[in-house]
C-alpha cells in the first residue's frame, strides 16, 4: 500500500496526542500528576496540537476536503466515521476539563469526570484508528490481531515519553512516570516485534488462482496487464518495497523508536534537571522519527489482493 505522508503523520501525531490526553485525564483527577496550572496548560496544549494537527493533516489526503464534515455521519457501519466522530466529540469533555482546571483550579468533581470522559474518548478514538486497518480483509498484513494492540502500544509509548519530557519542567526527577515510560517502550517494542513476526510467518490467504477462479489445468501466471501504463490501482495499492530496504528500515525503526528511547529514559531516570530534560527530549525526538519510519513501513509492507491481477502469485 502506498504510504501517504499525511496519513503517516496523522496516525503517529494523533496517537501520541490521544495517549497524552488519556494520561492527563486520568492522572490529574486522581492526583497522580501535579495539578499545577502551568503544567496543565503546557500538557493540554501539546495534546491538542498533536490531535488537531493530525486531524487537519488527514483532511489533506481527501479528494474533497471541503466535504470532510460528511464523514461523521456513518458511525453505524464505518470505523473511519467512528474515528472522526469520536475524535471530535472527545474535544467536548477535554475542553471542559481544561477550563475547570486552568480557570478554576478544579481537577475533581465535574471537571475530574470530564477528564475521565476525555480519557475514554481518547482510548476509543485510537481503537477506531486501529480497526480501520484491522477490518480490511484484502490486506493480510493489516487484517491481523496485532494491529490494534500495535496502535494502542505505540500511541501510549509516545504519550508517556512526551508527558515525561513536559513533567520535567515542573518536577526535577519524575521517577514514577520515568519507570512507566520505560515499561511502555518495552511493551510497544515487544508488540511491534510480534506483529512483524506474525506477518512474516502468516500464510497467504488469497492466490492468483483464487483471484481468477483458474487453476484446473495447472499453475496460473499473469501473461499481460490490461494496459502498458500505470494506473490508480497500481500506484495506490501496488506499492512495493525491496526486501533489502525493508530489513534496513525495520532496523532503523527498532533503533530510533525503541532502543534510543530506552537508553535515554534510563539516563533521565538517573539524572534529573537539565541533563534529564535533554535525555527526555532525545527520547521524544528519536521516537517520533522511529514511529514515522514504523508507520511508513506499516503501509509499505502491506500487500493488497488487487496485486494478484498484476503479477503477484499470492498475498
Amino acid at each position: 500500500m502506498h504510504p501517504t505522508f499525511s496519513i503517516v503523520f496523522f496516525t503517529t501525531a494523533s496517537g501520541a496526542g490521544f495517549a497524552l490526553l488519556l494520561l492527563i485525564g486520568v492522572g490529574v483527577p486522581l492526583a497522580l500528576l501535579p495539578d499545577d496550572a502551568g503544567f496543565g496548560a503546557a500538557a493540554l496544549l501539546v495534546a491538542a496540537v498533536l490531535i488537531a494537527g493530525g486531524l487537519v493533516s488527514s483532511a489533506f489526503h481527501l479528494g474533497r476536503p471541503e466535504r470532510a464534515w460528511r464523514a461523521f455521519s456513518q458511525w453505524r457501519s464505518s470505523w473511519l466515521s467512528r474515528e472522526g466522530a469520536l475524535s471530535v466529540l472527545t474535544f467536548v469533555p477535554a475542553v471542559i476539563f481544561a477550563f475547570g482546571w486552568l480557570a478554576f483550579g478544579a481537577t475533581g468533581g465535574f471537571a475530574g469526570l470530564c477528564g475521565f470522559l476525555a480519557a475514554a474518548g481518547a482510548v476509543a478514538s485510537v481503537y477506531c484508528t486501529g480497526m480501520i486497518y484491522a477490518s480490511l480483509k484484502p490486506i493480510r498484513q493489516w487484517h491481523n490481531p496485532w494491529v490494534v494492540p500495535n496502535y494502542f502500544a505505540l500511541g501510549l509509548m509516545s504519550g508517556f515519553l512526551v508527558l515525561d519530557l513536559i513533567l520535567r519542567f515542573w518536577v526535577v526527577r519524575p521517577v514514577g512516570i520515568g519507570l512507566l515510560s520505560l515499561a511502555a517502550v518495552l511493551v510497544a517494542w515487544w508488540i511491534k516485534e510480534s506483529y512483524w513476526r506474525s506477518i512474516d510467518a502468516g500464510t497467504a490467504a488469497s492466490t492468483v488462482a483464487s483471484a481468477t477462479g483458474l487453476g484446473r489445468r495447472g499453475a496460473v501466471r499473469m501473461l499481460e496487464r490490461p494496459h502498458t501504463e500505470e494506473n490508480y490501482l497500481l500506484t495506490e495499492m501496488g506499492f512495493r518495497i525491496a526486501r533489502k530496504h525493508r530489513r534496513r528500515l525495520r532496523n532503523i525503526a527498532r533503533l530510533a523508536a525503541f532502543l534510543v528511547p530506552v537508553v535515554a529514559v534510563l539516563v533521565a531516570l538517573v539524572w534529573g534537571g537539565g541533563a534529564g530534560r535533554i535525555a527526555a527530549a532525545v527520547a521524544v525526538l528519536s521516537a517520533a522519527l522511529g514511529l514515522v519510519v514504523e508507520r511508513w513501513l506499516f503501509f509499505a509492507e502491506a500487500r493488497h489482493t488487487v496485486t494478484l491481477y498484476y503479477g503477484a502469485d499470492q498475498v
Binding site: L62, R64, S78, L80, K137, P138
Partner: peptide, 16 residues
C-alpha cells in the same frame, strides 16, 4: 455529490 475522496472503499475492495 457527497463522496469526500477518502479512498478507503478502494482499499476495502479486494478486486480493484
Amino acid at each position: 455529490a457527497i463522496c469526500i475522496g477518502c479512498k478507503l472503499c478502494s482499499w476495502a475492495c479486494p478486486y480493484g
